[in-house]
Design a protein around this nucleic acid. Structure first.
Length: 496
RNA sequence: GCCCCCAUCGUCUAGCGGCCUAGGACGGAGCCCUCUCAAGGCUCAAACAGGGGUUCGAGUCCCCUUGGGGGCACCA
């Protein structure tokens, strides 16, 4: 057994939970669980301006939906709290001051306006936009004095002017950058709250985090985080940068606009949408787990427990992955078929209820086996099985005309079939199929023609679960009633 | 523009110098099964970005080019 890992998922509550976050959270969870360690949820809300109401709740329900339950977090507590960064303001200030006093950071009094001017000038001269280090060499005494006088200030990290910094990413290896190319990043804002860089590093240390798994958008500031740890003299966690998810075309990452368009197609990159669209959390997990990770060259069906057992950082793939929704559909079908009748019945029942149908559980349990392998998403149960719960279904008269036959020929068939069904003790699969096949044999019509007509009459659909199984569930009185209606409709058609 | 990262079928990927006439999956095409639709089974088309090295031998190691992605905020 490995050493217990403490892994944190640290989202900012600024919007909907998307696939990229979900995958990071899952990997966090897997590493924590497989080592017998803790999965920690930490809310990174140091930017109050970007706070979105309800985002935290959505985040938590999204994680729970996927089965990624955390051991420590703002709601459940833990011995390393508080777990919301906005509640840790004083902690960051203390550490920022330490950095300043030991010469690794400094107060900066430059106004946003001046910064903007500097940037514009640099842009004009085609220089790299960067802070000009105007306040870097102010003495601490002078700085403290100006602060006492109430002057607005931020804290910047004092990046070494020369030399190189090497940081180690678990999947990419060593990454080395020239310090001269780095900026003196702001680590505490003028409102006194730390920026991500400082807050995350301090929290990761204080919370004894062993693995930092995050998106590759953090790669550019990765050296800063390494330098911060070293300035404090802290041991660094294992750093793991995951590749980003690209839009289905593979060209760039998903924009807000495109996300909206996607929803019109019944697809989405947001967890909350995926749920209402009828996707199973098991399928979503399976799907995103395999975007950037693989076990071997053939295993592809996983549930969360399998992943806990088999997941390994060693098999992470550093290259970006395009989102492939047809693969999600495939996995969803696989996981739907993997459900027991009881489980699936429970999952699809709400769809019928929401659409105003009264659902008899006994009946539903009979329906599940015949539609299970036909469902791609849970809401597919509606087009497949609604007719079971309707008192009456009335097909279009024209749709009753069997393939390659006339209305009057179809009428003849309908009348014959009705007669046969009436003569049967019941319309169970066993009782009905053979007589129907005998009729087909004797009449010379094609099986497709007769069954097609029967299907349309009984279900008012061209596509349905297997006919005889369906009729058995519907029951003889209703089947007879619907056949009579079909005869009536066809009669009207052949007289016209 | 500058910095960083990445590079195998359309897509997700296996491949860690000889097991590769490059394997699997999704999607596509076809066939079988069949009362429709599925599911399932079988078959086919489909890739090592290009150029230099290193080596007896390169998809696998190194360099360059090209392409793609990410970042350059008092956001995370």
């Amino acid at each position: 057994m490995k050493n217990p890992a403490r892994v944190r998922f640290a989202p900012s509550p600024t919007g909907h939970v998307h696939l990229g976050s979900a995958r990071t959270a899952m990997y966090d969870y897997l590493i924590a669980k497989q080592s017998g360690g803790q999965f920690v949820l930490r809310i990174e809300d140091t930017d109050q301006k970007r706070y979105v109401k309800g985002a935290e709740e959505e985040l938590m329900s999204g994680l729970h939906w996927l089965g990624l339950d955390w051991d420590e977090g703002p709601d459940v507590g833990g011995e390393y709290g508080p777990y919301r960064q906005s509640e840790r303001k004083e902690i960051y200030q203390k550490y920022a001051r330490q950095l300043i006093e030991q010469g690794d950071a400094y107060y900066c009094f430059c106004t946003p306006e001046r910064l903007k001017e500097v940037r514009e000038k640099q842009n004009q001269e085609k220089q790299q936009p960067r802070y000009d280090r105007h306040c870097r060499d102010l003495s601490l005494a002078e700085a403290d004095q100006r602060i006492k006088e109430g002057e607005s200030h931020v804290v910047r990290f004092k990046t070494p002017l020369t030399g190189k910094t090497t940081v180690h990413d678990y999947v990419r290896g060593d990454i080395t950058v020239d310090n001269a190319l780095l900026d003196d990043y702001i680590i505490v804002k003028s409102d006194g709250l730390a920026l991500y860089h400082l807050a995350a590093v301090v929290d990761d240390h204080l919370m004894k985090i062993t693995h930092v798994i995050r998106g590759s958008e953090w790669l550019p500031t990765f050296p800063l985080h390494g330098m911060l740890h070293r300035a404090f003299g802290w041991q660094e966690p294992v750093w793991v940068h995951l590749s980003v998810f690209l839009k289905p075309s593979g060209k760039g990452k998903m924009s807000k606009r495109e996300s909206a368009d996607l929803l019109k197609d019944g697809k989405s990159i947001f967890l909350k949408d995926l749920k209402t669209l009828g996707y199973l959390p098991e399928a979503v997990n399976n799907w995103i787990a395999l975007m950037g990770w693989s076990l071997d060259d053939h295993t592809e069906f996983f549930n969360l427990e399998d992943l806990v057992q088999h997941f390994s950082l060693d098999r992470l793939n550093p290259s970006p992955a395009a989102i492939n929704f047809s693969k999600l559909d495939h996995f969803n079908g696989l996981h739907i078929r993997n459900k027991s009748v009881e489980e699936l019945a429970t999952l699809i029942k709400p769809y019928f209820l929401q659409n105003g149908y009264e659902v008899d559980d006994e009946k539903l349990r009979k329906i599940v086996p015949i539609i299970q392998e036909r469902l791609v998403t849970l809401d597919d149960c509606l087009p497949f099985a609604s007719f079971f719960f309707k008192d009456e279904v009335v097909p279009e008269a024209e749709s009753l005309i069997a393939k390659k036959l006339t209305a009057s020929e179809s009428l003849k068939i309908a009348e014959d079939v009705l007669k046969i069904l009436e003569s049967l003790p019941d319309v169970s699969h066993e009782a009905a199929e053979q007589p129907m096949r005998d009729y087909i044999e004797a009449s010379g019509y094609k099986a497709g023609q007769v069954f097609g007509l029967l299907r349309t009459a009984v279900t008012a659909q061209e596509v349905s679960p297997p006919l005889f199984e369906s009729m058995e569930i519907i029951g003889k009185p209703t089947v007879i009633r619907r056949m009579e209606k079909a005869v009536e409709l066809l009669r009207g058609l052949s007289e016209a």
